[in-house]
Simulated scan of single mutants.
Amino acid sequence: MDPVALVRAHGLVAPRSLLLDAGATPWQIEKALTDRRLFRVRRAWYAVPDAPADLVRAVRVGGSLTAVSAAGRAGLWTIDDGLLHVSVPRNAARLRSPDDRRTPLGDDSDRVCVHWRRVPGATTRLIEPLPSALIHALECQPEEHAIALLDSAMDKGLVTRRELEIAFGDLAPRYRDALSRADGRAQSGTETLVRLRLRARGIRVRIQVEVGPDRVDLLVGERLVIECLSREHHTGVENYARDRSRELRMVDGGYLQLTLSYEQVMFQWPEVERVILRRLADRDHLWPRTRS
């Protein structure tokens, strides 16, 4: 068996044991290394030259991608914290620098966050299963960011609430509390963050509410509509026209609409919150007939 083809079939990085078990010979492996069709990631692990850097670096450390590093690969909404998140066995030894297999894993300069697997033993996985990766995210991320990951995973159909309940079942109460506040209907991380922040203030917020022919992200009270733009939102001609028509219908129906950009939610929240609280204090979120 061609070891290069076997490595590609495994996900572009593979252990020596897998290649030998599939029929590759030591001579074939060494020949592929000599010909530079493979390179050595760490002891008994190999990769093809075009293997993704994050996978190579995680294996070089001695584990698998997890937490936000794995979530980003799955297409989930994430906030990049600048770290490589790696899951390793509880008995792992000889962890290496992600950039040099000859150098032990060092201090913060390596920018690696190590997560210890709950299940003992080595694995050939390159990426942690999603429920485990989400548990690891809750270990190291701000809670609202981790809940946004839970929302995103359920919204995309990559995991069910029941699967998460089983995975979180024997964990500390804070994990189950985070899951209880997750909602798979949320369609963007910014929507999740706004929902959590307002509810933390004791404000009643409904999500994905049908208002006439439209579905809105958040509805506060009876008439305050909050739309949350994602980082990827584009204002092309078609989107722009659709958004303006939507806003016109909201105003015509007597609703107040507040459209928040990614930057406003992430970096200007105190100012945004002040505006929302003022509108609530003035009872603008209620229809005139019910304000008294």
Rank of each mutant, 00 (worst) to 15 (best):
R195S: 03
A178C: 06
R278D: 15
M250F: 13
R199Q: 15
R278I: 10
Q208M: 07
W269I: 07
T190C: 15
F267C: 05
G253F: 03
L196W: 00
A200W: 04
E238I: 13
Y262K: 06
S230N: 06
H233G: 01
V194D: 06
N239G: 13
G202E: 01
R274E: 15
N239D: 13
Q208G: 10
E222A: 03
M250A: 10
P173T: 10
L256N: 00
R215P: 08
H233P: 00
A172L: 13
T259C: 12
A200M: 09
R244G: 00
E273N: 11
R197E: 04
R246Q: 06
R195G: 03
Q208I: 07
G189L: 00
C228T: 11
H233K: 01
E238A: 14
A200P: 05
H233S: 14
T235D: 12
E273L: 14
D183M: 09
V205Y: 03
P270R: 12
I226G: 06
Y255G: 03
V211F: 02
I276H: 06
L198M: 13
S261H: 04
H234V: 10
G221H: 02
L196G: 05
V220F: 06
E238K: 15
R279D: 11
R231A: 15
L196Y: 07
Q264R: 14
A186D: 09
D183T: 07
Y240M: 12
E247C: 00
G221K: 01
D217Y: 06
L193E: 02
T190L: 01
P270D: 10
G202W: 00
V205P: 11
H233R: 06
Q264M: 14
E247N: 09
V220I: 15
E227W: 03
R204K: 11
R201L: 15
L218S: 08
A172Y: 07
L193W: 01
R176I: 08
E273Y: 09
Q264T: 04
R278E: 15
E271N: 13
P213L: 05
R181Q: 13
V220H: 07
Q268T: 05
L229W: 11
Y255S: 02
E191K: 06
V251C: 04
M266N: 02
D243F: 02
Q268A: 12
L256T: 07
V211G: 08
R195A: 05
L224A: 04
E263M: 06
I226K: 02
L260S: 04
E222L: 03
R249M: 06
R279S: 10
R204W: 11
V209M: 07
P213W: 01
G236P: 03
R215K: 13
Q268S: 11
D214C: 07
R231V: 14
G189A: 11
H234I: 08
R249V: 00
L258D: 08
R195W: 02
G212K: 07
D217M: 10
R244N: 01
G253M: 10
R201K: 12
